[in-house]
Amino acid sequence: MTLAAPSPGTPSPAREAGIDLLRVVGVIAVVAGHVFEGPWVQRGIYGWHVPLFFFLSGYFWSRGRTLAEEAARRSRALLRPYVFWLSVIGVPFVALRLLEGQGAKDAALPLVLGGAYLTRPFSAFWFVTALFAACLAFRLLERQSMPVKAGVVAAALLACQLAPRYVAHVPAAVGTAFAALVFMYAGQCARAFGPQLPTVWIGWAALAVGGVLAGGGTLLPLDLKQALFGTPVASVAAAILICAGLTRLAETYGALVPPRAGRWISSLAQSAIMVVLSHSAVLEVLGTRSETWWPGFPLALGVPWAIGLLLLGTPAAPWVLGVERVKGLGGRRRLSPPRAR
């Protein structure tokens, strides 16, 4: 069995399994980042876990759609579950705040503004609208020249360096989305030039170099929700190296995943957006903080994922998970929301 990575565009089940597994690992890292805290979390998790999903969106980007078509597809895959879970979690949350004496405006306005205005139990909601905005911006810039694309991204990153607070508080995380385009363009470039570097050792080398840079303590950490892109150029470069290395290794070693295991991994990936959007609600109900991670971490992962797997086979899947209904666990594969085609 060869360990060479499949060529771009090849609809290989093995490649799908590897990428789906990578996405599952990324979601686990997102939850871990909301449970644990400390320097090792900043260096070991924040340096790649959110950039990974933007990177993969660029890596699997499909050219040729109109902006309207892109908006429609992203609305179904991202905004439908966003609105669903914002309503399910938000209604009792606002009601509780009103009962505690908080004003209606203060209780409800963050839900309208989204992005960095949303805290627990909506910790990761910003990511969904940021990815939606980034995909639309990426499509809008698709036919522009490279200098124009580079100028937009450079201006957005510069704004994040000079005034991260203002960028982060643009409603729905739209400001952060433009800076995050750097990871989407990096993913697209990795897809284009990756076949010229077919060896698996490229993946290991990129992961090692990026990991040393991000985890060595010399670079400022990333925190995309707060529009913090770390040490100029270096922190972003380290994140890109980690994402590129992980993607190459996932594609390569995905060939080793047995087909049945791959189908289960795919089911986990398809239901992952529920974990992203609802895990903080579980932590809020438990009152879990970083110093009391047990049982918060396993429950924040296990409860939403178990429910998501059950809902994957129901007519509710398009609204709850942003994917079409799948009959039977571990069955037919479909692409899940944060993954772009």
Rank of each mutant, 00 (worst) to 15 (best):
Trp126Tyr: 15
Ala29Asn: 06
Ser336Gln: 13
Phe132Gln: 07
Pro147Arg: 09
Gly287His: 05
Pro318Ser: 11
Ser12Leu: 04
Ala177Ser: 15
Ala156Glu: 01
Leu140Asn: 04
Leu219Met: 08
Leu197Cys: 12
Pro81Asn: 10
Phe138Asp: 07
Phe84Pro: 04
Val41Thr: 11
Arg65Val: 02
Lys327Pro: 00
Ser62Pro: 00
Ala134His: 03
Trp126Ile: 02
Val30Pro: 00
Arg333Asp: 11
Phe183Asp: 01
Ala104Cys: 03
Phe36Lys: 06
Arg332Gln: 14
Trp294Phe: 15
Leu222Pro: 07
Arg260Ser: 13
Gln144Asn: 13
Leu283Ala: 10
Val282Gln: 00
Leu52Gly: 01
Thr247Phe: 01
Gly38Tyr: 04
Arg191Thr: 02
Glu100Ser: 14
Thr252Asp: 01
Pro147Ala: 09
Leu249Ile: 08
Ala14Val: 01
Pro92Ile: 11
Ala306Asp: 03
Leu241Ile: 09
Gln270Leu: 05
Phe122Val: 06
Gly151Trp: 07
Leu335Ser: 13
Ala163Asp: 12
Ala208Val: 13
Leu136Asn: 05
Pro304Lys: 08
Ala239Leu: 03
Glu37Gln: 15
Ile242His: 02
Glu291Gly: 09
Leu99Gln: 14
Ala227Gly: 10
Trp293Ser: 13
Ser267Gln: 04
Ala186Ser: 12
Leu3Ile: 12
Leu309Pro: 00
Ser336Ile: 00
Pro13Asp: 01
Arg15Glu: 15
Gly115Arg: 02
Ala133Cys: 14
Ala32Asp: 05
Arg15Asp: 15
Gly210Tyr: 00
Leu79Val: 11
Pro164Asn: 10
Leu140Asp: 08
Glu142Tyr: 07
Ala306Lys: 03
Ala68Trp: 13
Leu78Glu: 02
Phe229Trp: 14
Val27Ser: 00
